[in-house]
Design a protein around this nucleic acid. Sequence first.
RNA 1: GCGGAAAUAGCUCAGCUGGUAGAGCAUCAGUUUCCCAAACUGAAGGCCGCGGGUUCGAAUCCCGUUUUCCGCUCCA
Length: 492
Amino acid sequence: MSKNTDELFKNVIAHAKEYGFVFPSSEIYDGLSAVYDYGQFGSELKNNLKTYWWKAMVQMHENIVGIDSAIFMHPKIWKASGHVDGFSDPMIDNKDSNKRYRADQLLEDKIARYDKDGKTDKAEALQIAMDEALKNEDLPRLRELIIEHEIADPVSGTRNWTDVRQFNLMFSTQMGAIADDADLIYLRPETAQGIFVNYLNVQKSGRMKIPFGIAQIGKAFRNEVIARQFIIRMREFEQMEMQFFVRPGTEMEWYKQWKETRLQWHLALGTDEAKYRFHDHVKLAHYANAAVDIEYDFPFGFKEVEGIHSRTDFDLSQHQKFSGKKMQYFDPELDADGKPYGNYIPYVIETSIGLDRMFLLTMINAFDEEDLSTDEKQDSRTVLRLHPCLAPVKAAIFPLIKKDGLPEKAREIMDKLKLDFNLQYEEKDAIGKRYRRQDAIGTPFCITVDHQTLEDNTVTIRHRDTMQQERVAADDLDKIIGKLVSWKNLLS
RNA sequence: GCGGAAAUAGCUCAGCUGGUAGAGCAUCAGUUUCCCAAACUGAAGGCCGCGGGUUCGAAUCCCGUUUUCCGCUCCA
C-alpha cells in the first residue's frame, strides 16, 4: 500500500465520521470491535444504494420478486445448509510459529502416524479419546491429548500450544423466556437460506414460472475471527441477495448473463471500469459448480464486493432431505422431443452483494480533495462526487444574506420542494462556506435566494462538480432537480 | 491470535530531564458581508483512553488493560 492510497483510506474513514456517515459502534464505551453505526447521512446513502439495487433487480424484472424473511430461523436450516458442521472447528495456535491448526486434524495426523508405525493400540486409544472429547465438546481435553501424545508443530517443531478454542462462525442465542429449556437459535450468517426455505411459498403464491428470482435485502451476522479494515469485514453486515431459479442444464447461460448484468449495475454509477475486475474462483465451495467475484480496487487492493455463484440444486436438495418436504417444481414446457420437462429441483444462480462494502466503495470512489489554489490564495475543497441519485441530500437552500426578507423567501421555496426531495436549509456563515459544507456531504445542488429573487422569482442553482451557477425560475426547480436526481438516469 | 506503534478539546496537534493543560480550526451568541473556506468581539468546551504502582507531586516514569492502526495469520 503506497503512502498516498493509505492516506486516502484514512481520510475517507475520518471524513465518514466527521460528517455523520459512519460511527464506530458504542463509541462512548470504547467501541465494539468490528461493529459500526451509520449516521444521519450514512443511513441516507445506504438507503439510496438499497433503492437502486431493489429497483434494478425487482422492479426492472417481471420475473423477480422481493421478500423480507426473519433473521431467526429454525436451527435445522443451518444443519441442512452445512453451516453448523462446516464452521465450528476446535482451533489451537502454536505460540512459536504463530500458526493456527485445527486440533482434531493434528490428532488425526498423529493417529495416522501411529498406524503407519504399527502402533495400532495407541492409534485406536487416541481415536476413541478424541471422539469422546469432540462429542462432549471438551476443549481442554483435546489440548491434553495433544500434550500427552507429544504432538509438535510441524513448522516450529515446538510443543508450545495455546488453549483449544472453538471458532464458530455463527452467533447463537436462545429462543424462549426460560434459558434452560430454550432451543439454541442462530443469527443467520447469510440471507440466502431465508429465500430457499420460502421458495415454494413464493413460487405458489406468486404463480412464478421458471426461470424466476427472489430478492432480499437484510442483515447477516458472522463471528469473524479477525475483522478489520473498517466496514469491509463486519460482524453485523447487510447483504443484498437474489436467488435465480432455473431449469437444470441452463445454469451456465444464466450464470454468464447475471455476471454481465451485475457488472453493468456497478458501471452505471459512472465508476471507472478499470476499478473493477472479475475474479473466478478456482477452488469452489461445496455447493457451487461455478463462482466469480466482482472485485473493486480499494486503496488496500482488489477486494470482493459481490459474488455470483452457480449453487446447483444443493440447497434445495438439502432442505428437501432435512425437512422431508418436496422442493421440486413441475415444468410444463415442452422439450425438444415434445415432452414436458416435468418435475425437478431447480438449479440456482445467486447474486450476492455486500451492502456495506458497496457503501465504502461508493465513498472512496466519490471522495476528492480538490486543489483550487490561485496565485494569490491557497485553497482546496473536499467534495463527495456522489451520483445525484445516491446523494443523501439532494439540494441545499440558502438565503444569500440573513436579512431583507431573503430567509423567508428561501423558506417558502424550501417548503414546496421538500415534499419531493431531501433538502437542507442553511443561513449561517458566508455563502462560500455553506457551499463547501454541502460539497463535503455530496449535495449535488445548492439553490441561493438573492435580492433579484424578490423581484423576478429566479434563483441561482450551483452545481457541486463544476461549481458553476445558472439562474433559473424558482417555479421550475422541482422539474430541474427532479430530472437530475431521477432513477431513470441509472436504470435506463 | 502473535509482533510493532499509537491514544491530550468535536478535528489536527503542541506540552522539555516529573511541578495539577495550550494553539489553530470547528461549535455557540453577537457584529460585518450581494456568490465559493479560514474577517471582528465574546463564550463554552479536557477524570491527558481506563486501572494500578513509583513519587511530596504523574499527561510525562513503570506495570496491566481497552481501543485503533501496520505486518503476519484466518477468511464457506
